[in-house]
Simulated assay, not measured.
Amino acid sequence: MNPVRVLVVDDSATMRGLISASLADDPGIEVIGQASDPLEARQAIKALNPDVMTLDVEMPKMDGLEFLEKVMRLRPFPVVMVSSLTARGATATIRAMELGAVDCIGKPSIDHPNSFDDLPARVRAAAGARLQRPSLGRPGAVDELATYKPDGRIVAIGASTGGVEALISVIAGYPENCPPTVMTVHMPSPFTRSFARRLDGLTDAHVAEAEDGAPIEVGRVYLAPGSLTHLEVAGGAHPRCRLNSDEQVNGHRPSVDVMFDSTAKAFGSRAVGVILTGMGRDGAAGLLSMRRAGASTLGQNEASSVVYGMPKVAFEIGAVERQLAIGDMRAGILKLTSSGKS
Rank of each mutant, 00 (worst) to 15 (best):
G273T: 04
T297F: 11
V182Y: 02
M259A: 05
L145W: 09
R330L: 14
R281W: 12
A129W: 04
M81H: 06
Q323L: 12
D246M: 10
Q248N: 09
R153F: 14
K107W: 12
P175Q: 02
L99M: 15
V8G: 04
M279Q: 08
M72A: 02
H238Y: 13
R88M: 08
L136N: 00
G137K: 03
G100S: 11
T263F: 02
G251V: 03
A166I: 03
A101C: 12
V182S: 01
D25F: 02
T181W: 03
S135V: 01
A208R: 13
K149I: 13
K70Y: 03
G251K: 09
A92C: 11
P150Y: 12
A266L: 02
L55D: 05
C178E: 06
D26L: 04
Q34I: 05
R138G: 07
L85E: 05
P120I: 07
G28T: 02
N2T: 12
R130T: 04
H186T: 01
R95C: 09
S262Y: 05
T337V: 14
P3R: 07
S169V: 10
G327W: 11
R292M: 12
P225A: 07
M259L: 09
N49R: 15
K61R: 13
V9K: 04
G226A: 09
P60A: 02
S304T: 15
M1F: 06
V170R: 00
G219Y: 04
D200V: 14
V71I: 14
R253G: 03
V4T: 10
Y308V: 12
R42L: 12
R133Q: 07
L65W: 03
R73S: 15
P113V: 05
P239M: 10
S160Y: 06
D204N: 14
R330H: 15
V31P: 07
I326V: 15
L336R: 13
A331V: 15
D37F: 08
A44N: 04
S245W: 08
A166S: 13
